Amino acid sequence: MQVKISNIANLPSLWGDFKIQAFKEGEKEHLCIFKGEIKDTLNLRIHSECLTGDALGSLKCDCGPQLQYALKYISEHGGMVIYLRQEGRNIGLFNKVNAYALQDSGLDTIEANLKLGFKADERTYEVVEFILKHFNIKKINLLTNNPIKLNTLTDIEVLERLPIIIKANSHNEGYLKVKQKQMGHLL
């Protein structure tokens, strides 16, 4: 795997003062946001990009609130958020908007992805292990509800799963039920 690595810079934010470093994997530019001493054991959130939830405050998903929760947690307890450029479960923004339109007509998130010719979830996590090895991290406490993330890291020991529970709203209740019942998320 060929990855270019940026310098480390300061990132003052609403949730505290962090350090950031970018990792360029082909056309994808991922970001590490971290605070505190980087030890071989780390609190970690692996977060896939969601422009509509993270930046625009969409109520159709729980992505933005999960990212905010993770940044607050890392600010208070130390650790890292790895922000992966995998918009819309890695189908891209254009296809995600088309999936949203299909959801508006009654399909759920999985049905919409399948109708567009994609798997329910196209994300991959190989670059996460590369990043963790770069920082010499061997053990993590993983902030996640996604069981795939618990089992995808082959060379990293997951000591504990730290759940991120976000209150449902009228716009994302169905979405969260699909994540729980069809994708096995631990909600």
Rank of each mutant, 00 (worst) to 15 (best):
L14M: 14
W15G: 01
W15L: 02
W15T: 15
G16E: 12
G16L: 14
G16A: 12
F18I: 07
F18P: 05
K19E: 08
I20E: 09
I20A: 11
I20G: 04
Q21W: 03
Q21S: 01
F23Y: 07
F23N: 06
F23V: 00
K24P: 00
K24T: 12
K24H: 04
K24Q: 06
E25H: 06
E25S: 09
G26H: 08
G26P: 07
G26C: 09
E27I: 12
K28L: 07
K28V: 01
K28A: 06
H30S: 06
H30F: 10
L31M: 07
C32V: 04
F34R: 00
F34W: 06
F34V: 03
F34P: 00
G36W: 01
G36R: 01
G36E: 02
G36N: 03
I38N: 06
D40F: 01
T41C: 05
T41P: 02
T41L: 07
T41M: 11
L42S: 10
L44P: 10
L44C: 12
L44S: 09
I46G: 02
H47G: 01
S48H: 12
S48I: 08
C50N: 02
L51K: 13
T52V: 00
G53M: 06
G53Q: 06
G53T: 01
D54M: 02
D54R: 05
A55M: 13
L56I: 05
G57M: 10
G57I: 10
G57C: 12
S58L: 09
S58M: 00
L59Q: 15
L59N: 15
L59A: 15
D62K: 12
C63H: 03
C63Y: 07
C63E: 10
C63N: 04
G64R: 03
G64L: 00
G64T: 00
P65I: 13
Q66F: 11
L67Y: 14
L67T: 11
L67H: 09
L67I: 15
Q68S: 14
Y69I: 05
Y69V: 04
Y69D: 09
Y69Q: 09
A70V: 03
A70Y: 04
L71N: 04
L71F: 03
L71S: 11
L71W: 01
K72P: 14
Y73R: 04
Y73P: 02
H77T: 14
G78A: 14
G78Y: 15
G78P: 08
G78M: 15
G79I: 04
G79C: 09
M80P: 01
M80S: 02
V81S: 05
Y83H: 13
Y83P: 06
Y83L: 13
